[in-house]
């Protein structure tokens, strides 16, 4: 490596570099300034903590039936959020139900994310026949109405939380596959991919070092937006009786239980309803905030 002589006088004078490392931390700073996103994040953290700590919290047994204390209104002694038609403590059931709802959403999202990303990366990166085959399969999945497909899948597999989770995961694969594919396509057109090929890098190396690191940001946004929907979908399947089976309950089955007493005891349906809306709203505003923070089009510059 001795063929390098000293640099020329002019080219040696390089002044200090642009904007500095602060720029790398900018998306996080921008996210922190977004109040709605921070509110969403706070709600998610609180719900997650409550769900995780449910076994050690001083809560009533969520499944303990007390026929003498049925449909008690919120604020009753020993039942802050009231009781349901079997006299079970709604607060306790909400917190235990959050475990189920969150777990199903997170696991289903992980499955959909892994399979969808794999398909999206392969289709986007290799293009041609691979792309055609995968994308036509995805089109077939998309040809069915969303909820109908999930219901059909669960009916085929049999009702139950695990099967509901699998159904929700399958239904959401297309969402990840299509979005990841388009992210890969835009990265693939960048010249640094050509530069890597020209340097002799193989496909695996290019995918691992040049493609994946550059699509992480859009994937993070996808996940945070998607988990919100998954919470709704899990609740939806449980609501129609295809998800959580008694005595296990999640927010969807609580909603279904409360439905019959909507006139006499509206709190029985309102409490799980509010919980669902709040959590979905939290995931969506965090997702929107992430998207804004990571969107390069919002970087400054003007004329």
């Amino acid at each position: 490596m001795s063929e390098f002589s000293s640099p020329t006088a002019v080219t040696n004078q390089v002044t200090d570099t642009y904007a500095g490392r602060r720029a790398a931390a900018m998306p996080i700073a921008r996210l922190a300034r977004n109040r709605m996103a921070m509110l969403g994040l706070a709600v998610i953290v609180v719900v997650t903590l409550l769900a995780l700590l449910a076994p050690v919290l001083p809560l009533a047994d969520p499944n303990a039936i007390n026929t003498t204390a049925r449909l008690k209104p919120p604020g009753s002694p020993g039942a802050i959020l009231g009781t349901d038609q079997l006299g079970r403590d709604i607060l306790s059931r909400l917190i235990w139900g959050a475990r189920v709802s969150l777990l199903v959403a997170v696991v289903a999202a992980s499955i959909a994310l892994s399979v969808g990303t794999l398909i999206g990366v392969l289709a986007g990166y290799f293009g041609g026949l691979v792309d055609n085959v995968f994308m036509r399969l995805i089109d077939v999945l998309l040809a069915f109405p969303y909820v109908l497909l999930a219901i059909a899948l669960v009916s085929a597999l049999g009702p139950g939380l695990i099967n509901a989770m699998i159904a929700i995961a399958i239904v959401n694969i297309s969402f990840y596959a299509r979005n990841v594919r388009s992210a890969v396509l835009s990265v693939k057109s960048m010249e640094y991919i050509d530069a890597a090929r020209a340097a002799g890098a193989g496909h695996l190396r290019i995918i691992a070092l040049d493609i994946l690191p550059n699509i992480i940001a859009p994937i993070v946004v996808l996940v945070s937006l998607n988990i919100g929907w998954m919470v709704t979908e899990t609740a939806g399947l449980s609501f129609v009786g295809l998800g959580a089976q008694p005595p296990t309950s999640d927010w969807g089955s609580m909603l279904a239980d409360g439905r019959r007493f909507i006139l006499v005891a509206p709190h029985a349906i309102m409490m799980p309803g509010i919980a669902i809306v709040l959590l979905v709203f939290a995931f969506n505003s965090l997702g929107d905030g992430l998207r804004d923070a990571l969107d390069p089009r919002l970087r400054e510059g003007g004329r």
């Binding site: 904007a19 602060r22 720029a23 900018m26 400054e300 510059g301 003007g302 004329r303």
Partner: peptide
Amino acid sequence: QFQSAAGVVRA
């Protein structure tokens, strides 16, 4: 002038 993350830019 423009306001940017880097401060005031006197364009």
